[in-house]
Design a protein around this nucleic acid. Sequence first.
DNA 1: TACCAGGAGAAAA
DNA 2: TTTTCTCATGGT
Length: 209
Amino acid sequence: MKEKLEEIYRRLFDYFGPQHWWPAESDFEVCVGAILTQNTSWSNVEKAVENLKRAGALSPDAIASMPQDELEKLIKPSGFYRQKAKRLKEFCRWLIDTGGLDALREMPLDVARNRLLEVKGIGRETADSILLYALEKPIFVVDAYTYRILLRHNIIDEDTDYDTMQELFMSAFSPDVELFKEYHALLVMAGKNFCKKKPLCDGCPLKGV
DNA sequence: TACCAGGAGAAAA
DNA sequence: TTTTCTCATGGT
């Protein structure tokens, strides 16, 4: 198992090169992007984030104090805009009460994770994305691409859940923030370019794994 | 036109 | 407890 996951990483890294994720200008922007990208293409998230920047609203205080209908208009391109506006406001209020990202960063990984998961609208993938990319904590982010790629290469069966997949990676590698960042980013690249629902296995760097 | 995208929570069974 | 439904814009 360990060898297989190492082989996949090596092949993806050789093919795509380093990704240097997450694409954002600040830790807080990572959090906003993580919520907005829920079941949504990244290009739509970029439009919403750009709207927030132009409005000078890319801060916890601005989002927490903004009328919800105004926030909805700004993030509309990212889809699910009514529930995402609620989730953003909920997260920002919570973040302010908690003492900001720096306070969260001081907490042990499992404590910070459980705190995040208590916030409505923050599920496992969103929490782990924030922990890894905004707080630099060594946790592996699993997503739909991870599932699809592992399934396609017969590493898991179709009813494997999030925690099991995460544990596969976490037990195969020693905790390494940079490795976990790159690996997840590379899996997304592989998923976008090759292992879609209609897979383009032609030319896929993972062919034969 | 139908399908899909870097999920999560509530409702139903 | 597990499965199903809902949320919604924009690109292909």
